[in-house]
Design a protein around this nucleic acid. Structure first.
Length: 281
DNA sequence: AAACAGGCCTAAA
DNA sequence: TTTAGGCCTGTT
């Protein structure tokens, strides 16, 4: 078993820039969980880490190598979110949402993991999605050790491509099983090149994703935003539909929000989901 | 117990 | 081009 030493606390910045609660609970990721002390433990990129808030600062327990080689990019630390928020120009409601959601960062998740996870997400709530993803990893992912515990990486597309619906039966993901197998085959077989789609423009990426069975506009936009790094992608689910119905004109075009529309979407979504109430109140 | 859930697909207007 | 019903499963 590969061991990852975890003896090192590195500062990720202030809560204002990276709020673990908002970032991990805003629905974009499924493998971060808080313990009773509010310490988050998560798995990404075949690594595990803990994220700890101490006062106004946020720290990650990992090696220097993994921080610079992986987590810094995963948490999108190079991007100035404050400046992007200032740049939004779409009225008081978005300002309100952005103020409320300040601290959310769009995690740069693994492309295949994001696609697969959001296929599984359809018509499910977050606890169940988390359970599905966790089971998928335990059954078919690689095991490694971190901080004396066993963790499981997300199975790569090549692995899932070789599975049958029968293999996936223990997952109990129902009609989504053939969808993820099909997507895995496309990704592993080169029918869809996620690396290329990350560099392509969003419309091209969306078009390719939508060609997959079981991937509609909502799942494709989530994969584009959270996996491919297309910050202009604007996922619209039932919560967003309601928020937009109540606060935006009927002919509102998300593209008018510019290249970071996806971040605006997260602010609006998080605000709507939280009912405008801060979880720390 | 029946309806619903952070969608998608297909069939039918 | 838009709309209804069904789909696996788990929860209420």
């Amino acid at each position: 078993m590969r061991k990852l030493p975890a003896d090192n606390m590195i500062c990720l910045g202030s809560v204002k820039e990276l709020d673990p609660v908002k970032t991990f609970e805003c629905g974009q990721c499924f493998r971060w969980n808080a313990d009773e002390n509010g310490v988050y433990t998560g798995v990404a990129g075949g690594r595990a880490a803990r994220v700890v808030t101490k006062g106004k600062k946020v720290y990650i327990k990992t090696t220097n190598e993994d921080f610079y080689g992986f987590w810094r990019s995963y948490f999108d630390l190079e991007l100035d979110y404050e400046a992007i928020r200032q740049g939004f120009d779409a009225g008081d409601y978005l300002k309100q949402c952005a103020g409320f959601g300040a601290g959310i960062r769009i995690l740069r998740q693994d492309r295949w993991e994001a696609l697969c996870s959001f296929i599984l997400s359809q018509c499910n709530n977050i606890p169940r999605i988390k359970k599905l993803v966790e089971t998928l990893c335990r059954c078919f992912g690689g095991v490694f050790e971190y901080d004396g515990e066993a963790f499981y990486s997300f199975p790569d597309a090549e692995t899932v491509a070789c599975l049958t619906e029968r293999d996936l039966a223990p997952l109990r993901c129902g009609y989504r099983a053939p969808y993820i197998i099909g997507a895995a085959k496309a990704v592993a077989g080169g029918g869809i090149d996620l690396d290329k789609l990350a560099l392509a423009d969003m419309d091209e990426a969306m078009k390719a994703l939508l060609s997959l069975d079981g991937v509609g506009v909502k799942v494709a936009s989530c994969a584009a935003l959270f996996g491919l790094g297309h910050m202009e992608a604007f996922p619209v689910d039932v919560w967003m539909k309601r928020a937009m119905r109540e606060h935006f004109p009927p002919d509102f075009d998300p593209r008018s929000l510019g290249p970071y529309a996806g971040l605006a979407q997260q602010y609006i979504f998080y605000y709507a989901r939280s009912g405008g109430k801060d979880s720390s109140d």
